[in-house]
Design a protein around this nucleic acid. Structure first.
Length: 692
DNA sequence: CATAGCCGCCTTTTT
DNA sequence: GGCGGCTATG
C-alpha cells in the first residue's frame, strides 16, 4: 500500500521497518510511539510530519512539541531536508505557551508584554516574598519554597486553591509566601516558567472558544519525550486535542529523568486509558549501539522494578567495546579520559563524535583541566552559563525594560550599570514614593522632580536615565539586532566594558547581537517583545554546536536525545551516581538515577568507557569513595571479563581467569604474575584494569 | 555614593 | 570552592 514512489517528500528514500512505517503513516486519532533508545524515533516523527502533509494536511495545522529548543531547531532542519518547506509549528511547550498567552493575554488575565522570569529573578522575588511575610529564611528557605511552589503550579494548584486547602501551620505559611510571591510577579508583569504552563492550562480549560480556536489551528499535535511531561503539560495537551484527538506522543518510560522537576510518568503509562482508541506502536530495534553496549544497558535497566519489561534489539553487528576502569582519584581519571581520547583520534575517530558525561556540573572542572593540558579541543554544554553572564544579563535587562517597564528586577539591575550616580538611598526614596502613590517604580522615576527627598542633582540624573529610555523606545519596532547594538553603545555599557578591558565580555555581547541578527533573519515579523520572551527560554544546551570538532562535556541530563561514537561516563561512585541528594531509600528516586545511567549508556554507538575513582575531592575535601552499586548490575560484560589484564596493590599484575557474576558479591579469579591464583571479591579487591 | 573585601550560604539534574 | 550579599572604608 505504501510502495511510495509518488511521495511528494523524501520519505520513500528511507528504509523504514514495519513498525516505523505504522507510526509514520498512521492517519487520524491518538497514537503512542513507545520508542526505545536509538530506535529512529526522531526520523519517524519528521517522516510523520511529511507524511501528514503529503496526505493533504496543511503544515500550518501541525504542531510538534519538543523537549528543548535545540531539538526543535533540529527537527525544523530535518523537516526542511525532507522537503517540507516549513509552516508547521515546532517548539517547546514553554515557547508554545508564550505564544498562546500573548495572543490571548486579556483572557488569560495578563498583559501581553509580560517578562519571563528565570531562576535568578525568581530567587529575588521569593526572598522578597519571605521577607514580606515576616518569616525567617532559615525555616522557610527560599530555594525550597520555590521548589514547593513550582510543584504546586505543575499540579495546577493556584494560590486560592492552595490557601483553601492549607490547614496546618506550615502549609498556611507557605500559602502566604506563595500568595506574596505571586503578587510580586504580577506587579512586575512577569511570569515564571511554571506560570507559562499553568496559565495556559487554565486559559484553555476556562475558555472553550479559545480552546476551540487553537484546536482548529493545531489539527495534529505531536509531542516528543512524552515521558518527561508534567501534569500541567498533560492538561494543555488534553485540551488542545479535545476536539479531534489527533495526538501523537512519543517517548520511553525508561528514559524518564525529570521526575524531580515534576515529570509524571503516569502521562505515558496511562496513555491508553486517556485515549482508549489509541494505537500503540513499539519501536524496539536499536540502530545506534553495538550489542555489547546494549547488553549492559539492558542488564542495568532490568533492575528497575517499576517498569514494563521491554526488549532492546540490537541491529548493529558486533564488535563494540565496554570498558570499566578504576582510578585512584579524579585527576587520574580525567587524565586517562584525555589519553583515551587521544588514542581514539589517533585511530581516526573524530572529536565531535566523543562525549564525556558526568552527574553534576561541578565535575567538569578537572576534565577541563586535563583537556587543556593535553591540548584537546572541547566544549562544555552547561545549563545557563552564557545567559547568566553579567554583561549578557545587563544588556538583556535594558531591552526587557523597553518591552515591560514594570519589570523592576531588570530595572534595578541596570539603573546604575554602568554607574551613573544613582545609589541605594536614591532607589529607596523613589521606592517609598512609588509605594505612597501606588505607582510602579518606573512611573515614580518619571516623576523624580516631584520627589522632595531627592536633591536637584539626583533628580537630574534620574531624568537623564528616563530620557535615555524614551529615546530607545522610539525605535523599538522592527529588527532587534540594530536596536540591541544601539542600546549597548548608548547605554554606556560598551564604553564601560572597554575601559575595564573586559574583552571577553564584549565578545559575548557580540555573540548575543549576532544571535539577535539571526533571529531577525529567521522570523517573518521580528519584534523585540517576541525576541525577549523567546530568549528567556533559551539555555546553553541550545547553543551546543554539534558540528564543531570538539569533545562534548555535559551532564547526563543534557545528554538526552544525543548520540556519539564513543562515550565516557565518569564518577560512577556511591553518592554521585546515584547521587546522595536523591533519596536512595525512595525506590522511585533510585530508579530514576538508574534510568539516568541508562540514558548515558545508550548514547554510545561503539565505545563506552565507564570509570570511578577511589578518592574524589568534593567541595575541597578529599573523600574515599566506593564503586556505584549500579556497576554491579551491568553484568560480566562490563566487569572483569576473562583475559582482562589487572593490577592488584600487593599481588601486582595478573590476568582474569574467571568472573563469577553474583551482583554486588561478584568474585573474580585472577592468575597473578608471581604464579599465584586468587579468588577475590570484587568489591573489596581494589583491582584496577590495565588496558593495553 | 562607590568599591573592596569579607562572610556565610549552597552545590543534582533544567524548561 | 564559588557566588551573592553585606559591611566597612574611602
Amino acid at each position: 500500500m505504501t510502495s511510495g514512489t509518488d511521495f511528494k517528500f523524501q520519505i520513500s528514500n528511507f528504509k523504514l521497518t514495519p513498525s516505523q512505517r505504522k507510526a509514520v503513516f498512521h492517519k487520524e486519532g491518538p497514537l503512542l510511539v513507545l520508542a526505545g533508545p536509538g530506535s529512529g524515533k526522531t526520523r519517524v516523527i519528521t517522516c510523520r510530519i511529511a507524511a501528514l502533509i503529503d496526505s493533504g494536511i496543511k503544515p500550518y495545522n501541525i504542531c510538534a512539541i519538543t523537549f528543548t529548543n535545540k531539538a526543535a531547531d533540529e527537527m525544523r532542519q530535518r523537516a526542511v531536508a525532507l522537503g517540507v518547506s516549513g509552516g508547521a509549528h515546532i517548539s517547546t511547550f514553554h515557547s508554545l505557551c508564550v505564544r498562546i498567552l500573548r495572543q490571548y493575554a486579556d483572557r488569560a488575565g495578563i498583559k501581553a508584554n509580560f517578562s519571563v522570569y528565570d531562576e535568578a529573578d525568581q530567587s529575588k522575588c521569593i526572598k522578597q516574598a519571605v521577607k514580606d511575610c515576616e518569616l525567617d529564611a532559615t525555616n522557610f528557605p527560599p530555594a525550597r519554597m520555590l521548589e514547593y511552589i513550582s510543584k504546586l503550579k505543575n499540579m495546577l494548584i493556584d494560590v486560592d486553591f492552595f490557601k483553601a486547602q492549607a490547614d496546618e501551620f506550615r502549609t498556611e505559611k507557605i500559602a502566604k509566601i506563595y500568595s506574596h510571591y505571586q503578587r510580586i510577579l504580577t506587579e512586575h508583569n512577569a511570569l515564571d516558567f511554571d506560570d507559562l504552563l499553568m496559565k495556559t492550562a487554565f486559559l484553555l480549560e476556562s475558555y472553550p472558544d479559545v480552546c476551540c480556536e487553537l484546536g482548529n489551528r493545531f489539527k495534529f499535535l505531536l509531542i516528543d519525550e512524552y515521558q518527561d511531561t508534567n501534569h500541567a503539560q498533560y492538561r494543555i495537551a488534553k485540551a488542545l486535542v479535545s476536539q479531534h484527538n489527533n495526538i501523537c506522543a512519543t517517548g520511553d518510560p525508561d528514559q524518564s529523568i525529570y521526575r524531580w522537576r515534576g515529570a509524571d510518568l503516569r502521562n505515558i503509562l496511562d496513555f491508553e486509558q486517556d485515549w482508549p482508541d489509541a494505537i500503540i506502536v513499539k519501536l524496539e530495534e536499536n540502530f545506534r549501539s553495538k550489542p555489547e553496549i546494549l547488553g549492559v544497558a539492558d542488564k542495568l535497566i532490568a533492575e528497575n522494578k517499576n517498569r514494563k519489561p521491554k526488549k532492546l534489539i540490537a541491529i548493529k553487528p558486533p564488535v563494540g567495546k565496554v570498558v570499566l576502569t578504576q582510578f585512584e582519584d579524579e585527576t587520574e581519571e580525567a587524565q586517562a579520559v584525555a589519553q583515551q581520547v587521544k588514542e581514539l583520534t589517533d585511530e581516526g575517530a573524530s572529536l565531535k563524535d566523543i562525549a564525556v558525561f558526568y552527574r553534576v556540573n561541578a565535575m567538569s572542572r578537572v576534565l577541563e583541566e586535563a583537556f587543556i593540558q593535553n591540548k584537546i579541543p572541547y566544549q562544555i554544554v552547561r545549563g545557563v552559563e552564557f545567559y547568566n553572564r553579567k554583561e549578557i544579563k545587563d544588556l538583556l535587562a535594558y531591552l526587557k525594560i523597553l518591552v515591560n517597564p514594570s519589570d523592576d528586577i531588570a530595572l534595578l539591575r541596570i539603573i546604575n550599570t554602568p554607574s551613573r550616580g544613582i545609589g541605594k538611598t536614591t532607589i529607596d526614596r523613589v521606592r517609598a514614593y512609588a509605594a505612597r502613590h501606588s505607582i510602579s517604580f518606573f512611573e515614580a522615576l518619571k516623576k523624580a522632580k516631584n520627589i522632595d527627598s531627592l536633591s536637584k542633582g539626583v533628580q537630574a540624573k534620574l531624568g537623564a536615565f528616563i530620557n535615555m529610555q524614551e529615546r530607545f523606545k522610539k525605535d523599538i519596532s522592527g529588527k532587534v539586532a540594530p536596536l540591541a547594538e544601539r542600546v549597548f553603545v548608548k547605554s554606556g555599557l560598551s564604553e564601560f566594558l572597554r575601559c575595564a578591558g573586559e574583552e571577553d565580555a564584549i565578545e559575548n555581547v557580540n555573540e548575543l547581537i549576532n544571535s539577535a541578527a539571526q533571529y531577525d533573519q529567521q522570523t517573518q515579523t521580528p519584534t523585540l517583545l517576541d525576541y525577549i520572551q523567546q530568549i528567556s527560554l533559551f539555555s546553553d544546551v541550545d547553543r551546543y554546536d554539534t558540528s564543531s570538532e570538539r569533545v562534548a562535556l555535559m551532564t547526563l541530563h543534557a545528554a538526552k536525545g544525543l548520540e556519539f561514537e564513543n562515550v565516557f561516563i565518569v564518577g560512577l561512585e556511591e553518592g554521585l551516581l546515584p547521587h546522595e541528594k536523591s533519596n536512595t531509600d525512595d525506590q522511585e528516586d533510585l530508579e530514576e538515577e538508574r534510568r539516568l545511567f541508562f540514558v548515558g549508556i545508550t548514547r554510545a554507538k561503539v565505545g563506552l568507557y565507564i570509570s570511578y575513582a577511589r578518592y574524589r575531592t568534593i567541595r575541597g575535601q578529599m573523600l574515599r569513595g566506593s564503586p556505584s552499586p549500579f556497576l554491579f548490575e551491568l553484568g560480566s560484560m562490563a566487569a572483569f571479563a576473562p583475559g582482562q589484564l589487572v593490577r592488584h596493590e600487593s599481588f601486582g599484575l595478573g590476568r582474569v581467569e574467571e568472573f563469577i557474576d553474583m551482583g554486588e558479591n561478584s568474585v573474580v579469579v585472577v592468575k597473578f604474575e608471581n604464579g599465584q591464583t586468587k579468588s577475590l571479591m570484587l568489591k573489596y579487591a581494589d583491582l584496577s584494569k590495565v588496558n593495553i
